[in-house]
Design a protein around this nucleic acid. Structure first.
Length: 462
RNA sequence: UCCGACUUAGCUCAGUGGUAGAGCAAUCGGCUGUUAACCGAUUGGUCGCUGGUUCGAGCCCAGCAGUCGGAGCCA
């Protein structure tokens, strides 16, 4: 029996074939007097295969009823196309219709806005653009694993549900099985979480880092790659409530090793996608961001700029540029500052390090100057912060002091502090927002369009 | 959450106080191997919701909702 061949493989053939079988979804149909051109896409690649359906097909009257969105199986000869736009086409010998899409199929043979397609996010992967985006997303995920696995990093599955109610990275979603309309109360009127599923408050993770550090101080080099949740009311094209984060952690490593790893990783992933998704990337260069190839070439061919936070402030002060937020030592870099550095000043990715300790997280290693911490952010054109990382404070006493300074409770971090009690070593890591890397690689401007089913404030559809 | 813009046919939009429009899609028909094919015809509307001003509101005013953009928070 004839087996199905994917379209990506057929189009890579170097000669005609007497009989092939393709299955897929109809993108468009053009009728002539005695035959029809039907373009079928099976998602294996951007391109469609053109089917020639002649009127001598026994079910030609049914074939003429085919609509955009219908599912079909076609067998016939793969022949060189007479038309100019494609190498091969299939002359149908047998044309099976799985299912006709009714005339209310919402995807038309024309360009749709991203906003409309978001409202039908369950169908948008059937468009050229979103099909391409999600093939790239798959390749980019694979590249992340390849990069780390080739370097001996172990993949660690950190928990999605966490009992630490303060991982120090923003608002959390609460997880509960309590009846919200009839909450159990303690004597002083507070919610009695001892009656909840876990016997205490639980949340969705905002970061796997603390867990990751424990595994790095056992397996050496590790990485996490999984979903992350932030309950922040952020309404921007760069934030989602559910997103995927990559968090490597290296034992016996300092801030320089961390920066090297971040730079190597971004470069590796960009190169991998360019090598494996050339057709899909071309669509984005052509229709989404005409500067995409230049941007990606810059990332691959030139070293990232590396400066300290203090130098970044000085550069901006001397630039003469008017900023809405005046650059001053002690204030965190604003979006306009990040974009100035990456887009205008360096015109390439830039790593800013050694931030004042006041504006960074408690676990970052205090530098010898006593004022700054060994933190590093990778800023890229158009997106701003792609990566945030640091060398971790490995001194037990200093870490406890930083926990106190930040108004946090030492007992909540008791398990985490064991990494500093027992065989503490210098170590470093970072967090990379996977969707932001997708935006970088595709040129897509909105995070809602690089994740299959986006979750944002006021929106959990599909 | 703050600031701003927008919301009219399935989609993209026009319509500045007096009888709701176009292109595309869909449907039907035509057509020489087409490429988002082409040509002709037909169908399609509670103008986001609620209230107000007016003889009369898609249009003016208020509130609400949603979407988008910018900012903050961050990945």
């Amino acid at each position: 029996m004839l087996k199905r061949t994917k379209i990506v493989k057929l189009l890579a053939e170097d000669k005609e074939l007497p009989e092939v079988l393709v299955k897929g979804w109809v993108r468009t149909k053009r009728d002539a007097k005695d035959f029809s051109f039907i373009e079928v896409n099976d998602g294996s690649c951007l391109k469609n295969i053109q089917i020639i359906a002649n009127s001598n097909l026994p079910n030609y009257s049914d074939v003429k009823k085919i609509t955009t969105g219908s599912s079909v199986a076609v067998s016939g000869a793969l022949v060189a196309s007479q038309g100019g736009s494609q190498k091969f086409e299939i002359v149908a010998g047998k044309f099976e219709i799985y299912s006709l899409a009714p005339d209310d199929f919402p995807l038309q043979k024309k360009k749709h806005t991203d906003e409309f397609l978001r409202s039908i996010a369950h169908l948008r992967p059937r468009t050229n653009k979103y099909g391409a985006a999600f093939r790239i997303r798959s390749q980019l995920s694979y590249a992340v694993h390849k990069f780390f696995q080739e370097r001996g990093f172990k993949y660690v599955h950190t928990p999605i549900i966490t009992g630490s109610d303060c991982e120090g990275a923003g608002e959390m979603f609460q997880v509960t099985t309590l009846d919200l309309n009839n909450l159990p109360r303690t004597k002083d009127g507070k919610v009695d979480y001892s009656k909840d599923f876990f016997g205490k408050e639980a949340h969705l993770t905002v970061s796997g880092q603390l867990n990751g550090e424990m595994y790095a101080t056992a397996l050496g080099d590790i990485y996490t790659f999984g979903p992350t949740f932030r309950a922040e009311n952020s309404n921007t094209p760069r934030h989602a409530a559910e997103f995927w984060m990559i968090e490597p952690e290296m034992a016996f490593a300092d801030i320089n090793d961390d920066m090297d790893l971040a730079e190597d990783m971004v470069r590796f992933c960009v190169r991998d996608v360019m090598e494996n998704c050339a057709d899909d990337l071309e669509l984005f260069e052509k229709y989404v961001d005409p500067t995409l190839k230049t941007t990606l070439a810059t990332i691959m061919d030139s070293d990232f700029a590396r400066i300290t936070y203090t130098e970044a402030i000085e550069i901006m002060q001397k630039s003469g540029k008017k900023f809405e937020y005046k650059p001053e030592y002690g204030v965190d870099l604003q979006t306009e500052h990040e974009r100035f550095l990456a887009e205008e000043y360096f015109k390439k990715p830039v790593i800013v390090r050694d931030y004042p300790k006041e504006i960074k997280a408690f676990y970052m290693k205090l530098n010898p100057d006593g004022k700054t911490v060994a933190a590093m952010d990778v800023l890229v054109p158009r997106i701003g912060e792609l990566i945030g990382g640091s060398q971790r404070e490995d001194d037990y006493q200093k870490l406890v002091k930083r926990i106190e300074e930040n108004g946090m409770k030492e007992e909540d971090y008791d398990w985490y502090l064991d990494s500093r009690r027992y065989g503490s070593v210098p170590h470093a890591g970072f967090g990379l927002g996977f969707e932001r890397m997708m935006m970088l690689v595709t040129g897509i401007a909105n995070i809602r369009d690089v994740i299959p089913f986006p979750r944002t404030p006021n929106s959990v559809n599909f």
